[in-house]
């Protein structure tokens, strides 16, 4: 079992063993295990509650996405108490061996291609597809909560959403606008050179994916002006 990534909250492993079948159903098939380890610093009662709530939330969200046919890994098995989710393996490696997240892909282009390569038609259609995917998500009143370029994986040319630990259900334009705003900010800080084009394409796709995008985009203007960060007293 190899560690794919280690964040603050969870460790992600890749494995070839399936929780039910003794042999992989398909040869060379791989699965992902997301594990939220217990945190020693937390009171055991708080720790158990958080681990369980977040795991349950994430699994529910992923199930709903699967039913709606929105690209995301499907859940194979879950252990709520121990904070383990067993899911489908998504993505393929980039030529340099990194995971094929949108972030790594864009960084790879930045390093290995000229400026035109970073804003090619291929990149544009990929980002439009990402925008469309987020649009579909919001059209179903689902909020990701932590949209960044590293939380979107590319499987071939198809984008897939991952990491729903902070997800929620909401029909408010405000929540959707903040969701997009968080992504915009993330793009600006991680891919600053071409951020303007990237964000434009993402929004282009978003309008295609979400039929009721007008209200959300109007709210997005407000959110941008307001900023997420406020000025504080003493």
């Amino acid at each position: 079992m190899d560690v794919v990534s280690q964040g603050a909250e969870a460790v992600v492993f890749v494995t070839t063993s399936h929780p039910y079948c003794s042999q992989p159903a398909v040869e060379n098939d791989k699965y992902i295990i997301k594990y939220r380890p217990s945190k020693k610093y937390r009171h055991p009662k708080i720790d158990a509650q958080i681990t369980k709530n977040r795991t349950v939330g994430e699994v529910r969200f992923m199930n709903k996405l699967e039913k709606l046919g929105i690209n995301s890994p499907s859940v194979i098995s879950a252990d709520y108490v121990n904070g383990i989710i067993w899911m489908e393996f998504i993505g393929d490696g980039l030529p340099n061996g990194d995971i094929s997240s949108v972030k790594n892909y864009l960084w790879y282009l930045e390093k290995n291609d000229d400026d035109d390569g970073c804003v090619s038609d291929e990149v544009q259609s990929m980002l439009v597809a990402v925008g469309r995917l987020i649009g579909e998500l919001h059209a179903n009143d689902m909020i990701h909560g932590d949209l960044t370029s590293s939380n979107i994986l590319l499987n071939g040319k198809e984008p897939y959403l991952i990491d729903f630990g902070l997800s929620s259900i909401s029909s408010l334009a405000e929540d959707k606008a903040v969701d997009i705003y968080v992504l915009e900010r993330a793009i600006e800080s991680t891919h600053s050179v071409f951020a303007d084009s990237y964000n434009k394409w993402l929004l282009k796709g978003y309008v295609q994916g979400n039929k009721k995008s007008k209200e959300v985009l109007a709210r997005l203007e407000e959110v941008r002006l307001r900023g997420r960060k406020r000025s504080m007293l003493g």
Partner: peptide, 10 residues
């Protein structure tokens, strides 16, 4: 404090 430590870790 759990919340504080969690966001610090993030």
């Amino acid at each position: 404090f759990s919340m504080l430590v969690e966001i610090t870790e993030r």
